[in-house]
């Protein structure tokens, strides 16, 4: 670090200290986050995670220094993007990701900001009375017309493509439409823990999938227990029910009269007779008066 200024050396040392202190270290992008909001989030994460902004090259140096004790942590350096900061915590990385995602908010697009993904104006009623706003919409390429006394967007329209800067007039229009396409928050890019780096795509938990997996596991366990007749407290009733049902079914299908099957068998015989009667009911004389009513 011969050519490195003294303050930078100190900064690297501080970063290194932070990285050494915590088991879980992540790289975040402070997505367009206003200072006030960042402060608030820091307060919310207090006791759980520390966020420290710095320059990419200094973080790189700190990661290199730490690689001896935290094997593979240098792999984090490939995930630095945007307004970079380090986050350090003892939290489960998946939980950390979830907390940060849940705290993201949406914000209006400022002129000149880069669209993170396509910005779409959806088709439908804008709520605006006919007026100059119609021209404004058309000006920025949104097909609109008057319908039932309202300005209506005719079809879903991409006004800014992902990666493009938001033009000033579009930003104004979006704001009037109350469309807030920008995500504001702490974007966790990658996390290091115990020699492994988890990227955001791995960190996202699909709760619906988890629920579905649980239900699948529970269903399979019940099915297995019942079908293989392995009694458990939870399934013994169902096993009895199944055995009884099957026995009754066989009894009824084979017309084996017992105290429990006679009723259903007679019922079934009569129902079948009535079914045939109704199938021939429109033929004159085919059924007797008693049935014809």
């Amino acid at each position: 670090m011969a050519h490195v200024a003294e303050w930078k050396k100190e900064e690297v040392l501080e970063l290194k200290g932070l990285i050494d202190k915590y088991d879980v270290v992540g790289i975040v992008d402070l997505l367009n986050i206003p200072a006030k909001q960042l402060q608030e989030m820091r307060r919310n994460l207090k006791d759980k995670a520390v966020i420290r902004m710095s320059k990419k090259n200094l973080i790189d140096l700190a990661l290199e220094d730490c690689n001896a004790s935290k094997n593979n942590i240098v792999d984090l350096s490939g995930h630095m993007d945007g307004q970079v900061a380090i986050i350090a915590t003892e939290m489960n990385p998946f939980k950390l990701y979830k907390i940060l995602e849940d705290s993201k908010t949406s914000a209006p697009a400022k002129p000149g900001t880069i669209a993170p993904e396509d910005i779409v104006v959806p088709a439908g009623d804008t709520g605006f009375e006919p007026g100059p706003f119609l021209g404004e919409l058309q000006q920025v390429g949104i097909p609109a017309k008057i319908d039932k006394g309202k300005i209506v967007v005719q079809k879903d329209t991409v006004v800014v493509e992902a990666g493009e800067a938001v033009p000033k007039d579009v930003a104004a229009t979006l704001s009037r439409l109350d469309i807030n396409p920008m995500e504001v928050g702490i974007d966790l890019k990658a996390v290091y823990e115990d020699e492994a780096v988890y990227t955001s795509d791995l960190l996202a938990i699909d709760e619906e999938q988890t629920m579905a997996d649980l239900q699948g596991a529970i269903r399979s366990a019940f099915n297995l227990s019942i079908n293989a007749a392995i009694p458990t407290d939870e399934t013994i009733s169902s096993i009895i029910t199944l055995a009884y049902t099957r026995a009754i079914n066989v009894g009824v299908e084979a017309a084996i009269l017992t105290s429990e099957t006679s009723g259903p068998i007679i019922g079934l015989a009569q129902a079948k007779m009535l079914a045939i009667a109704s199938a021939v009911a429109d033929k004159a004389g085919a059924i007797d008066d008693e049935l014809a009513e």
Binding site: L257, T258, S259, S262, I266, G267, Q270
Partner: peptide, 17 residues
């Protein structure tokens, strides 16, 4: 088996159902 069964009753419950 039918000695213990009231056929009319069995038929009636069927009709209802």
């Amino acid at each position: 088996a039918l000695e213990d069964v009231d056929i009319d009753e069995a038929m009636e419950t069927t009709a209802m159902a």
